[in-house]
Structure formats: C-alpha cells, structure tokens
C-alpha cells in the first residue's frame, strides 16, 4: 500500500495523493484494529467466561455451545465456595506470608541495592556479577537440598520455609532497585555526607523517600509472587488449616472437579485482587517487567 504512495511522489498530483494517503491510512488502521480485536478475543474471552460461568447453574454450564449470559444468575456459587472450603483461612494464611515477603523485598533488598548502586568497596562488582548470574539460575538445582535443610530444621509443615528465605532479599528486586538508584542525582547525598550523616542515615532519609516509585513496583511484585506461589506451599505445607489460596484452590479443583460454577467462582475470587491491583498500578507493572523481564 505504501509503495503506491511512494511511486506517486514523482508526479505531484497533490489532491489525489493526499486523498489516497488518507484512504491508505484508514484501511491500515481498520486492519490493525481488526487484528487487535481478534487477538484480544483470544485473550479476554476465557476471562469473561470465567466470570460468566461462575454465575451459572450446572445445567446451563453443560449447554453446548456455551451461553455468554448466565440465566438465571446463581450468586450462591460464591457463598457456597466458603461452605465447601475455608477460603477465609486460606486468605489469612496468604496475607500472613505476604507481609514478611514484602518487608524482605522492600527493606533488605533496597539496602543492598543502594550499596550496589552507590557505595564503593573492593570486590563489589564481582559480587554483583554473582547476583546477576543467580537471576538466571534454574531454581530446580537448589530445590532438594533446601527442602532437606528445612526438613532437618523441622520447618516442613510450617510457614517458615516460605518466609525466612525471602527476608534475605531477592536478586531481581535488588537489580531493579539498583537500576533506579543509579539514575538518582548524587548531590543530595554528597551534601548529607559533608553534614556528617552516615550511610544508613543517607539511605533512610534521602534515598528511601525518593525511591517510592520503585518501592511500589517491588512491593507489587513481591505481593504477586507470594499470592501466586504454588510450588512452595505445595511442598512445604501439610495441614489444610495452613493452606494458602493457591494450594487451597488446587485442592478444591481436585475435590470439586465437576462443580464448575463453584470452581469458577473460587478462581474468580483469586484472580480479582490481582487484576484490581493491575488497574491501580499499571505503570509499576510495566516498569517492573521491562526492567527485569520477570514472568508472572
């Protein structure tokens, strides 16, 4: 299409050319929208049907091809979920794990990130290279000995394996925050040093207040990581009273594999907070992913 407009350049028939460009542009934008719409159908339709199915009665779910609108609306699916499984407890357990995780991500990692970004020490760069390489390390190599370690400590069957290691900081978050700190201007810190502040005070009073945007990103990722984590709870938690939402939902899927209304209602409840979070913090999501290439 563009080739045609280009060939026209040698013969300046102004009006027809602009008209043609306009038509080409319109057709192009129409095609783009068409592709985008078809694409978004693939991505969005499952989620729309997730919500719609969560409100359907069993016999309507088994209808083929599926209806979009529930008839009648069965809101009871949502309350029934809580009768069959203690999702309230699962939620509390998940939050109990999320709080220290977020703390570890925000405090420990940001201190290390500040040191990597600003402070000079022999061997620091070598340590940073090690940190970077751990980001690509397949988690499976450390899995079994860490499990044995926790088993020997008597931690299996408690929240400790899910909480303690994250308190020591996370390579992804350190990397992400280091990138941010490196971009901050130095003058304020230099002034504070001259005034006799130590590095911890500089970090606490100058760097942290400036770090709010990246802190938000890291907090969101830490939250999502803990909310979505399935493997950790699967191998470390034993009692049903300890289950997190992920693990609880999986067991629920196993036990109620035919009650689709219930399953979809439970899944909807698990997905909704994440999607809401995304709508409130789109910028942080995009930034975080761009910087680390982390997959959800």
């Amino acid at each position: 299409m563009t080739t045609i407009t280009k060939q026209q350049e040698s013969q300046p028939t102004r009006i027809s050319r602009t008209q043609r460009t306009r038509v080409v542009k319109a057709v192009r934008s129409l095609l783009t929208h068409l592709f985008l719409l078809v694409g978004s159908f693939f991505f969005v339709a499952p989620l729309i049907f997730l919500v719609s199915t969560s409100l359907k009665a069993s016999r309507q779910i088994a209808k083929f091809p599926p209806d979009l609108i529930p008839d009648p609306f069965i809101w009871a699916n949502y309350s029934d979920v809580f009768i069959y499984a203690p999702f309230g407890t699962y939620l509390l357990n998940t939050i109990f794990i999320i709080i220290p995780t977020v703390f570890g991500a925000a405090i420990t990692s940001s201190l290390a990130a500040y040191a990597f970004a600003r402070l000079r020490a022999p061997g620091k760069n070598a340590i940073f290279m090690v940190l970077l390489s751990t980001m690509m390390l397949p988690g499976v190599v450390t899995l079994i000995p860490t499990y044995i370690l926790y088993a020997k400590l008597g931690w299996v069957g408690s929240f400790k394996p899910l909480i303690v290691p994250v308190l020591f900081g996370n390579a992804f978050y350190i990397f992400l925050m280091r990138q941010f700190f490196t971009s901050l201007p130095r003058e304020l810190e230099d002034a504070a040093l001259i005034d006799g502040c130590n590095y911890l005070q500089i970090f606490w009073r100058i760097i942290l207040p400036l770090a709010k945007p990246v802190m938000a990103t890291v907090t969101i990722f830490a939250f999502m990581g803990a909310w979505n984590d399935y493997f950790g709870p699967l191998i470390y938690l034993a009692e049903k009273s300890q289950y997190t939402l992920s693990l609880g939902l999986q067991v629920f899927v196993q036990q109620h594999s035919t009650e689709w209304g219930l399953l979809m209602a439970a899944s909807t409840m698990m997905v909704t907070p994440i999607i809401l979070l995304f709508f409130f913090a789109q910028k942080q999501f995009v930034q975080g992913i761009m910087l680390t290439g982390m997959k959800g």
Binding site: S40, P46, W227, Y230, L263, S267, F278, Q282
Partner: peptide, 28 residues
C-alpha cells in the same frame, strides 16, 4: 491491558480456568 492480564493470572487459577476452556464436550 487485554493482552497483558492473562499473564498475571495466578497459575492455579489459570489452570482451573483452562480446564473449563478445554473441556471437550462443552468447553469454551
């Protein structure tokens, strides 16, 4: 947003959802 949201759906929830999507007799 439409393209991105599926990637943040928790693995267990997206598996549950796809059990329904891929259900052979009356799945989506």
């Amino acid at each position: 947003t439409a393209y991105f949201i599926p990637s943040i759906v928790p693995a267990v929830a997206s598996a549950a959802l796809w059990l329904y999507v891929l259900q052979p007799e009356w799945g989506l």
